[in-house]
Amino acid sequence: MTEKQQANRDWWLGVGHMVSHGLAEGAIKAQRVHLSIADETFNILARNPVTGPVSEQVRSVHHGVSRLCYGTVSLVSDGLARLSQQALPKD
């Protein structure tokens, strides 16, 4: 492998490391944004006498599914970030 090819390979490894780390952190932040915006709506629904009785159950399901999805993305990305960290050049 030439020096240029090695540099190119290292550069793409760096991109992979940065993107996977960004996805792992970004998924958690996106989850917080998603849930807090959703809470605004659920809070309104909770005050409505018609929707109030079921809104908490819907909120609970919605938040649970969301946490599962974002958490999965974050976990997988974190694993990729750790793997790419190992592959980064050491010097």
């Binding site: 550069w11 760096g14 940065m18 960290q85």
Partner: peptide, 25 residues
């Protein structure tokens, strides 16, 4: 374009990249 990208990314998070040993720094 890779150098240009590295320069922009380094400006935003270059201290973190360096701490991680990321070649983009």
């Amino acid at each position: 374009w890779q150098h240009q990208t590295s320069a922009i990314v380094s400006g935003f998070i270059g201290d973190w990249l360096e701490a991680q040993g990321n070649p983009l720094a």
